[in-house]
Write a protein that binds this DNA or RNA. Structure first.
Lengths: 218, 218
DNA sequence: TCCTTATGTGACCGGGTGGTCATGTTAAGA
DNA sequence: TCTTAACATGACCACCCGGTCACATAAGGA
């Protein structure tokens, strides 16, 4: 259910304004509670017009999410370009930093992603999440496989488990950064750039060496 | 905004039926989308009656969440009772297993908790989450402090950071167990009891020793 | 028995929603 | 200039919501 042809006939600037208004509304309210009335009101256009660009609410939302996956694809592409043969944990750290930059640059898109992740009444939810996960599974899965071959990470864990644990920590870090409700009093979002970078370093170090008392160097 | 006195005048069985219907509806739909019409319809009572027991939707919901915090309190109490001087990682593992049991026994209550955690339009959200977090901060924060004194975990990380990282992993594990949408293809929810226990063990081991190649024993 | 109080009832209200469509407006080709 | 097709408009629709309230019913004391 892509946008109708009429949408792409619009001047690019107007397309962008409509997209921005939709992104804002969906980010602030999630899919179900987002109001088309509010969107058209803020845009100063008639509701009928919106329905001439998109078949319905779902069509508008899918267009918004498509733009999100485009942005993720861009990000991953530039990430892969950066030294694919770097150290495993170095790359994980870069991925986390890239996530933080994404949130800084596109906070509303990230909020929409979280909405889809945690709200059940989103159209084609499985399909949408599947797309994003495919990206991350390919990227992190590949990293893990190579790192195990190179002996950089322990070989006794299956890669899906490794990816799961890594993503647990990275995702939560990003969630806490994006919405203070999710860091349990750590205050990640309010940290200075220096302290934030230290938190990143510590997080990656724990992923590498664990919480246990540091052993003798191997 | 507690239930009105009339609610507690009801036979216990009817109180329980009403609670169960509300729990189900809030678990399935979250706060905003949950429908009082649906609840009274399933209960076979008039909407006016519900408003004689509770001031409004918010009052009903707060009663439901209160029962949830009661259950959490019970769980933590029995958890603390179990060997408080056991090994740190052993206790973390027990906490994770207790979480899994809670989900098995009270799946709807756990879903409601997740709703509150991830949906913004919940009345008194900060207050409700604060209560639960207080429990967990006290428990895990205490564990961390003692474990650092005893030299069981590395001393270079502040406890809030340790708790944050621990909870990242434990919470995500529980979320994945409760709703397959949140494990990235790992299939935690569908695992056999044996495989599930192995996943628990591996998870705790990674928290302790990290993902890096295992060093020489210290 | 009768009166009073407490409890149960569901039609009804105002408000917001996604979606429609007859009508008005604009623009282009002949 | 006239015709025709594409686009813009907002009043309107059916639906569902949380919440109200005048009224019916049941219960308990005298």
């Amino acid at each position: 259910m892509p946008p109708k042809g009429t949408f792409f006939n619009l001047p690019r600037a107007k397309q962008d304004r409509i997209l921005a208004a939709a992104v804002r509304e969906f980010a602030e309210n999630g899919y179900r509670r987002a109001s088309l009335n509010t969107i058209v009101q803020r845009l100063g256009i008639a509701k009928g017009s919106l329905y001439q660009y998109f078949a319905n609410k779902e069509g508008l939302f899918l267009h918004v999410f498509d733009r999100f996956t485009d942005l993720v694809k861009e990000m991953l592409a530039s990430q892969v370009k950066n030294g694919p043969e770097a150290d495993f944990f170095r790359q994980i750290q870069e991925a986390l930093l890239a996530g933080l930059r994404f949130i800084d640059n596109q906070p509303d898109f990230y909020r929409i992603y979280l909405r889809v992740l945690f709200e059940e009444d989103v159209p084609r939810r499985r399909e949408l999440l599947g797309k994003v996960r495919l990206f991350s599974m390919e990227y992190f899965g590949g990293l893990c496989a190579r790192a195990q071959i190179n002996g950089i990470i322990r070989p006794d864990l299956p890669c899906p488990m490794v990816v799961f644990l890594m993503e647990s920590v990275l995702d939560r870090f990003l969630q806490a950064y994006a919405s203070p409700d999710h860091d349990n009093g750590l205050g990640l979002a309010a940290l200075s750039a220096i302290d934030r970078d230290q938190a990143v370093t510590q997080t990656i170090d724990v992923l590498k060496n664990g919480l246990g008392r540091v052993k003798a160097e191997g």
